[in-house]
């Protein structure tokens, strides 16, 4: 589904990703862990198509297509979803209107008829309950004045509505208390199918107790320095990152 080959990327001449290799198949959950500054968020942003990152080398293939050649909206319509670490506030854009525009852009892309306001509201009400979100949020501007937990849950609500094939969750656990974390995780788990894949980016192992990964990768200084099963996450929790990222222990 996703094939990242030797990806190098940076900002304004400063290299951040220095040769990432990663292969994700349908039905898999991958976790990318790493200390601050290792390049985790850059990887998420580059996959979503954020402007300002320069790709200097490498390629990314998504379902046989050259992902890096696609505009951000084309990636989204093709089924790539990024849950933002910092969801953006957009005053003046009504949340319901925004969600319906997004859903209908996707439906149009698939050749489906747009949902009218009533049908859309029905679909949304059902999902909003699962995420324990207050329906009044839908009448407010996108993310404006939402608490941190509400923002993160609203990201998962969007994910539930857009039903992506590949979801990239960028530090979705940051700023959440344990109850909110469980709600978010169960929302994400419910969207897991044999046809979809998830790439979970996190600093801490905590989230992975609830979203159990098939593969764990440790990112350090723009490279994946260790890959393993879910037990790697527990090992990191116990031992920290130092034993992996010391220069002498890095692969040549």
């Amino acid at each position: 589904m996703l094939e990242i080959k030797n990806l190098h990327a940076g900002v304004e001449g400063r290299p951040i990703l220095k040769g990432i290799h990663l292969s994700i198949r349908p039905g898999e959950v991958h976790a990318v862990m790493g200390p601050n500054g290792s390049g985790k968020s850059t990887l998420a942003q580059v996959l979503a198509g954020r402007e300002g990152y320069i790709i200097t080398e490498g390629e990314v293939w998504y379902e046989g297509k050259d992902l890096l050649a696609m505009e951000p909206e084309e990636r989204a319509r093709a089924g790539v979803f990024l849950a933002f670490q910092y969801p953006v506030e957009i005053p003046g854009v009504n949340t319901t209107y925004f969600l319906r525009t997004a859903v209908n852009a996707l439906r149009q892309h698939r050749g489906e008829a747009p949902l009218d306001a009533v049908k859309f509201l029905g679909a949304m009400r059902e999902k909003i309950k699962l995420l324990e979100l207050d329906e009044s949020l839908l009448k407010r501007s996108v993310n404006e004045g939402f608490s941190c937990g509400e923002k993160k849950r609203a990201e998962i609500l969007q994910m539930a509505l857009l039903e992506p094939r590949l979801a990239v969750l960028d530090e979705t656990d940051s700023g959440l208390d344990i109850d909110a974390l469980k709600v978010v995780a169960s929302g994400v788990n419910r969207l897991k199918t044999p046809q979809t894949a998830q790439l979970v980016i996190t600093h801490y192992q905590r989230l992975l107790e609830y979203i159990v990964p098939d593969h764990v990768h440790v990112l350090h200084d723009g490279r994946i320095v260790r890959s393993g099963g879910k037990e790697l996450a527990f090992e990191l929790e116990e031992r920290g990152y130092d034993w992996l990222v010391k220069p002498s222990l890095q692969p040549a």
């Binding site: 198509g49 953006v88 957009i90 005053p91 925004f98 501007s141 969007q158």
Partner: peptide
């Protein structure tokens, strides 16, 4: 970017933001 990352075209995104203003 946030709007585009949800599949909304650049043109629609800009319109939405101006209208929001």
């Amino acid at each position: 970017f946030y709007l585009r990352a949800r599949g909304i075209s650049q043109e629609s995104a800009q319109r939405m933001l101006v209208h929001a203003f």
